[in-house]
Simulated scan of single mutants.
Amino acid sequence: MKKLNITLSASILMALASQTALADDLNVGGSVRGNYSYSDYSDSSQDKLGDFDFNLLSVTFSDKWNDIGVKAEYRFYDGYDHLKYGYAFWDVNDDLTINGGVISKPFGNKGYASHNWWYSLNYYMGFEDDYGVGVSAQYQKGSSLSEFAFIKNAVYGGTDHRDFAGTVAKGTVDGTTYNNEETNTFAARQSFTLTSGDFTTVLGASVEYGQLYNSDFGENGDTLNYAVHLDMNYDGWGFQAQYLAFDFDQYDDGQLDPDKIGMGMLDGFYEVSSKGNIYTANLSKSIATSWGNLTIYNDFSMVQPDVEEFDDSILNSTGVSLAYGPVFVYVDYYMAKNVLWLGGNSLGLAETHDDWDHRFNINLAYYF
């Protein structure tokens, strides 16, 4: 059934593109991506000398009429598809923009908190490149950027786990059933951009508060998360840092461990620590050449749970990306300890083994 849905969705998107391709302000694009990986924690990967797979097909739309516009991206994977974002926006004036639809949550380092294809651990906890259904506003005045959002709920609700980033959701892991869904979340980010010659520094802080609704009992828990973040650039060098404190305080129905909570994303469901800190530190260097732009980087992130019996989750990503015309390539080497989908099965819980896991990864993308 999912393959049929993908075919129908693709047909609809291509039909829309063909009908509107002549519009002056409409931009239709997307990407096709493939991925090679070699993982030392997978016997089959080692036996086959790695795996090369279709990664995704994405289709993007944008259009604007005077001060009103729309933007959307839909993605197709092997076995499922989902909307990453899709919203209308209104440029009220030169300083203020209002958005409505499936919008980006203003929280943490603006843009990305990482350079590599796997992102940082913030992403899997719901704090990087995260989206939800709601309204938002951005107010830019000089060096100050103020962003606010009200997110009513996750893009696909509580039981469908196709959301793009980690989302508190309903599901079962190893016999434990979680019955939470994110709703009525308020998020805000304030940042200041300071420049001096070639040196640019973006200082910021973020906060979010929202409900965690348990439909079985008709009760609410809540979540309160905050972060301070820094992004510095000088002559091609970049440094990012972030401290983030998270607290998912779900309704205690007496049937689960309140120190754990279930999350869904990218058609998967998993457990994470419900309270703790996330530390991020990234260093990069961009090099312009006559045949493309190179970025060399090392990205580090760590989830530190607020429970003595649990263990830290650590991810270090060393790599290089290449942008050459419509082609973009990531070449990454991941070292992970107690990390979901990188040799581990959770984030910030008791580790299943005391070893470091390693993965070599190449992601190839063609943008059209």
Rank of each mutant, 00 (worst) to 15 (best):
L8I: 15
A21W: 15
L22F: 11
L26D: 01
Y41L: 00
D47G: 00
K48E: 13
D51A: 14
T60W: 02
W65D: 09
W65E: 12
R75G: 03
F76K: 07
L83F: 11
K84P: 03
Y87S: 10
F89G: 00
W90E: 00
I98M: 08
N99S: 04
G101V: 04
V102Q: 09
N109A: 10
Y112A: 15
S114C: 06
S114P: 03
H115M: 03
N116T: 07
Y123T: 02
G126P: 05
D130N: 12
G132I: 02
G134S: 11
S136T: 05
S136R: 01
Q138Y: 05
K141I: 12
S144H: 11
N153R: 14
N153T: 15
V155C: 03
G157P: 10
A165D: 08
V173D: 05
V173T: 08
N184T: 06
F186R: 10
Q190S: 07
S191R: 07
T195C: 00
V202A: 03
Y209T: 07
L212H: 03
Y213N: 10
D222H: 14
T223V: 06
L224N: 09
D231S: 15
M232W: 13
M232G: 00
Q242I: 02
Y243R: 12
G254D: 08
G262A: 08
M263H: 05
E271C: 04
K275H: 12
N277C: 08
N277V: 01
A281L: 12
K285A: 08
S286F: 04
T295Q: 08
D306S: 13
V307I: 07
E308V: 10
I314T: 14
L315E: 08
N316Q: 12
F328Q: 05
D332A: 02
Y333D: 03
Y333M: 01
M335V: 06
L342Y: 11
A350L: 07
E351M: 11
E351W: 04
T352I: 09
D357T: 02
I362N: 13
N363C: 05
A365G: 13
A365C: 01
